[in-house]
Simulated scan of single mutants.
Amino acid sequence: MALFPIVIVLVLAAMWWMRRHSTLTRQCRWRAERTHPAPPGQAHFRCAACGAETDCPNGKTPNQCLRP
């Protein structure tokens, strides 16, 4: 019974952490476009759902909806 409050706090902390690192909407699906030229050290991404485009540093993906 003493573990119950600890488990609740851990679950809430995990939910907060996951929400903090992603602000994507369900419709956004970012795809790396390897054929599109991007600045050195960056990758070009295009959303398959809405068509938004952006460049991000290598190893990172967009985490926000950029719908016009």
Rank of each mutant, 00 (worst) to 15 (best):
Ala2Thr: 13
Pro5Arg: 05
Thr54Asp: 05
Pro5Ile: 07
Leu12Val: 13
Lys60Leu: 10
Leu3Tyr: 13
Leu12Pro: 01
Pro68Glu: 09
Arg20Asn: 09
Pro62Cys: 04
Met1Phe: 15
Val11Arg: 03
Thr35Asn: 06
Ala13His: 04
Pro68Val: 03
Phe4Asp: 15
Gln27Lys: 10
Met15Arg: 13
Val9Trp: 10
Lys60Glu: 11
Asn58Lys: 14
Ala14Leu: 14
Arg19Trp: 00
Leu24Asp: 01
Trp30His: 01
His44Cys: 06
Ala32Glu: 13
Val7Asn: 00
Gln42Tyr: 11
Ala48Tyr: 05
Arg26Thr: 12
Cys28Asn: 11
His21Val: 01
Leu24Glu: 04
Arg29His: 11
Phe4Trp: 15
Cys50Phe: 02
Pro57Tyr: 07
Val7Pro: 00
Cys28Met: 10
Pro37His: 00
Glu33Arg: 13
Gly59Val: 08
Met15Val: 15
Leu24Lys: 02
Leu12Gly: 15
Thr25Trp: 02
Arg67Val: 08
Thr61Phe: 11
Phe45Ser: 08
Cys56Ser: 04
Arg34Asp: 06
Ala13Cys: 12
Ala32Phe: 00
Ile6Asn: 07
Arg20Gln: 09
Ala52Lys: 06
Ala14Asp: 08
Ser22Gly: 05
Thr61Gln: 14
Ala38Glu: 02
Ser22Phe: 02
Thr54Lys: 05
Arg26Ser: 11
Trp30Arg: 02
Gly41Ala: 08
Cys56Pro: 02
Ala2Cys: 11
Gln64Cys: 00
Arg46Cys: 07
Val11Ser: 05
Ile6Arg: 11
Pro57Thr: 10
Leu10Pro: 03
Leu12Tyr: 13
Met1Trp: 15
Thr23Gly: 14
Asn58Glu: 13
Glu33Trp: 02
Arg46Asn: 04
Gln27Phe: 10
Ile6His: 10
Gly59Ile: 07
Thr54Glu: 07
Pro68Gly: 06
Ile8Leu: 15
Pro5His: 10
Trp16Pro: 01
